[in-house]
Amino acid sequence: MSEQIELGEHQHHDEQDEDAHHIVGPGVYVIILIALLVGTALTVWASFIDLGPWNPVIALAIATTKATLVVLFFMHVKYSTKLTKLTVGAGIFTFLTLVSLTLADYISRAWGSW
């Protein structure tokens, strides 16, 4: 319970204290660890069920959720400056540009000529 209160406080101070160095406590880390372990169990369990085209979607959705938790809490991005958030955003954006524009070529090759 106490961790949740702590979490609430962090959010409250987020605007003013952006530059101040923030120490994330073990309570948050334990919650995130449990969430990650549950996520892993969930994604393995989901992979044993035949969901057709939804299997990859679910696996990648869970992976993204886990990665987001790691980035936000283990890597402290939630408590970091806007600059750090922007940096992470820029990385994701460029990565998606590379993947999507390249895939756009490969997928549209199958459409043939005009």
């Binding site: 460029t94 540009t97 524009l101 070529d105 090759r109 459409w111 005009w114």
Partner: peptide, 21 residues
């Protein structure tokens, strides 16, 4: 600069639609 790289590849066999875009 990140959105235009395939204009080096117009004659290399990428799809017509990619060429257009």
């Amino acid at each position: 600069g990140f959105f235009v790289w395939a204009h080096h590849m117009f004659i290399m066999g990428i799809s017509n639609y990619a060429v257009l875009v």
